[in-house]
């Protein structure tokens, strides 16, 4: 039974609180949605319209925000003039590639970790998780030096490898929790029926499939939204959407329409994916510490 069902009695104070709560919620929802809304709307505004602002204190001037002729020319220019199709491709390949590698290797490793005990397992585990927690900037210093030596800077394989530094430990950590939940009896039954160990492993995969799928999506999301790795390791040949978007900010003559359009292009697919795996999201974002 949820704590939220606990009974409440009416009182004047209660009604007052209810009103305040409603007001707070409305304000909070507006504050949450407004930047997204502004981004979306501004991506359809022409350059000058995006700069229009009422005079200070002129509250009725707020309608000015909606005073524009919608245009899709920013979206067109992104893909025609700014090579965004290439960046989109880079983003997809780099994030999906790293996610796939991480989840496949991670699933094997997590499965084993969940099935055997050995001395130093705790330490191995902590090492794995600490690699995920390490500050990106700190990791990047040596990684940049190494990748530069190996000729991986500015290449998609380099970027995939870089993303794997945070996606692989994440996948191992999350998936181990998943395999822990699968009773070993299922594999034993399989092996009694004559299956090999590997077949037994395959037989429990359907049970963990939803989780594996969700964490694949989460890995994609983390990689897609990354900026630091992409801007340093990917600079040059493997520019991704967030980097490309940031680079639209020029000292002079900022193309706000294009930036907002690029923002929409970068954000929309992830919002969709996020909603798709909604119920794994909290577990994923808290490293499995909290389950909904």
């Amino acid at each position: 039974m949820a704590s939220s069902d606990v009974v409440r009695y009416r009182s004047p104070l209660r009604s007052l609180v209810n009103v305040l709560v409603a007001i707070f919620l409305v304000i909070y929802v507006v504050w949450t949605v407004l930047p997204l809304f502004v981004m979306f709307v501004s991506s359809f505004k022409d350059l000058l319209e995006a700069f229009k602002l009422p005079t200070v204190g002129d509250w009725s001037g707020i309608t000015l925000f909606f005073d524009f002729t919608p245009t899709v020319k920013h979206y067109q220019s992104l893909f025609l003039d700014h090579n965004f199709s290439v960046y989109l491709f880079n983003s997809i390949v780099a994030s999906a590639g790293s996610a796939l590698i991480s989840v496949v290797l991670g699933a094997m490793c997590a499965y084993s970790l969940s099935r055997i005990n050995f001395r130093g397992k705790q330490d191995l585990f902590f090492w794995i998780i600490s690699t995920r927690m390490a500050p990106v900037v700190a990791v990047m210093v040596p990684l940049y030096a190494i990748f530069r030596g190996a000729g991986l800077v500015g290449t998609i394989p380099g970027l995939i490898l870089a993303y794997t530094t945070f996606n692989l430990p994440f996948a191992i950590w999350m998936l181990k929790g998943f395999f822990d939940n699968v009773p070993y009896a299922i594999e034993e039954a399989q092996m009694c029926d004559g299956a090999t160990r590997f077949r037994a492993f395959l037989s429990i995969l359907p049970l963990v499939a939803p989780g594996v799928g969700a964490f694949l999506v989460l890995c994609i999301l983390f990689a897609w939204n990354d900026f630091l790795f992409a801007s340093i390791i990917g600079s040059g040949g493997a520019k991704t959407l967030p980097v490309a978007t940031k680079e639209l900010v020029q000292p002079q003559n900022i193309q706000w329409g294009s930036i907002m359009a690029a923002g929409v292009v970068t954000t929309l697919p992830m919002m969709f994916l996020g909603l798709l795996i909604r119920r794994y999201l909290v577990a994923g974002l808290t490293m499995g510490a909290v389950k909904e």
Partner: peptide, 14 residues
Amino acid sequence: LMPMMMAPVVAGLV
């Protein structure tokens, strides 16, 4: 949930 799905860079730009 929506802001969390946004790339931090894009959020920063907006």
